[in-house]
Simulated assay, not measured.
Amino acid sequence: MMKKPLAWLQLSVLVAAMTVAAVHSFPLTDKDLESEENMWNLYERWRAVYTVSRDLAEKKSKFEVFKANARYIHEFNKKKDVTYKLGLNKFSDMTSDEFTAKYTGALPEADDDVVDSFNILSTQPLVHGGEDAPLAWDWRDHGAVTRVKDQGKCGSCWAFSVIGSVEGINAIRTGNLLTLSEQQVLDCSSAGDCNGGVTFDAFDLIIQNGTTLDQNGSPPYYPAYVARKEQCRFDPNKPPVIKIDGKHRGNKADEQALKLGVLTQPVSVRIKSNSLEFHHYHEGVFDGPCGPQFDHAVVVVGYGETQDGVHYWIVKNSWNESWGERGYIRMLRDIEDKGGMCGIATYPMYPDMNPPAATFAAYH
């Protein structure tokens, strides 16, 4: 096969880089909103960037939704008293209800109202605790967080939240960051499907049978994620098989306890995400509004503080790197509501893994 010229390869890399940059920051100006023609031009540019492929019969109705969202985003970003910005993204021609039906999926637990008395400090060896806790902590800086992934049009956020927290504790305990398989959890767990799932119940699969590398792992094992539930193809006799030793809920509605928990490991949480602002979050510290009910599962991987003293959580989402701050959202921390912003501190969930020879202290 003839090798492609170096110039062609350089051009391909440049185009790819420009495409990524465009996805992360899609421009929106006053001129785009001046006329119907300009709005159509904006919509066509947006469709080209996000490779939207839909029946042309619904294009007009989708355009009307896009137009309303674009105008709202533009007016919101003119406000001077907000701590975050919105942006056009791949969800911008969807209503909030349509979006929630396709891209969230956290279902309530049967015993949601049970208060777990488990104290993260009672069993986990924290190097920092209480007033000695650092002002900021980010597990991405300590080799315990994999790349941002994409759940696609499948209500499987529950599987991504579970796997994200298991990837974290496994890396902390073993010193080896592995990219594990959401598809295997989706296929093999009875906790849910693309219509939603119960996050806490999904940990049972990894306790009992284990999980393994996804198709992007090295070497690949479980088939790649396809955003639909398929027949379980997991072979527990084919290594590597990663298991956890247990699971527990953290203190309910306690941001200080969540902070100390995040110092121990990435934490699976459920949040209220059904708001136009959350769906179109682009950058900054998100301070609401949130949705009316818990509908989405994510992973808290750290916390921090801005230069002007605004406290925030660092949250890994599963909507691709094109959303938010390259797939992450910073959410306001230490608020009056005990449940935290969008309920983030209400249902913290931790996978347990007994440490091998390496100690937790090595990662702090």
Rank of each mutant, 00 (worst) to 15 (best):
I172N: 00
S92W: 07
S35V: 07
L258V: 04
R173F: 01
F286C: 09
Y225L: 05
V285F: 07
D81K: 11
L178P: 00
I344L: 14
K85T: 08
G192A: 09
D334C: 04
V300R: 04
C342N: 01
T199R: 03
P240G: 15
P220D: 03
M18G: 04
F26T: 09
G143V: 00
F278D: 03
F26Y: 14
T359W: 00
D245Y: 02
S161C: 13
N77G: 03
V299P: 00
V299R: 01
I314Y: 02
D337F: 10
A159N: 12
E109P: 10
K252D: 02
V301W: 04
V285N: 03
F294S: 06
A202T: 11
E305T: 11
I207D: 05
A48E: 12
M349A: 11
M349E: 15
E44D: 10
A358I: 10
T19E: 11
R249F: 12
S273F: 10
L258G: 02
R326F: 07
P5S: 14
L28A: 10
K149L: 14
G327Q: 00
D337E: 15
D30W: 12
A345W: 08
K259I: 13
L332F: 02
T83S: 14
A136E: 13
E182H: 01
S61A: 14
M349K: 12
A159E: 11
A70N: 04
I163A: 07
S161F: 09
L33M: 08
L177R: 01
R228L: 01
A253L: 09
E34A: 14
T83Y: 05
T19A: 08
F200E: 14
N320T: 08
L213E: 00
A70H: 06
H280L: 09
P356C: 07
A357R: 08
R333E: 13
C232N: 09
Q215S: 13
G210N: 10
T104M: 12
I163D: 08
Y84G: 00
T95K: 10
A22W: 15
T359F: 00
A191E: 08
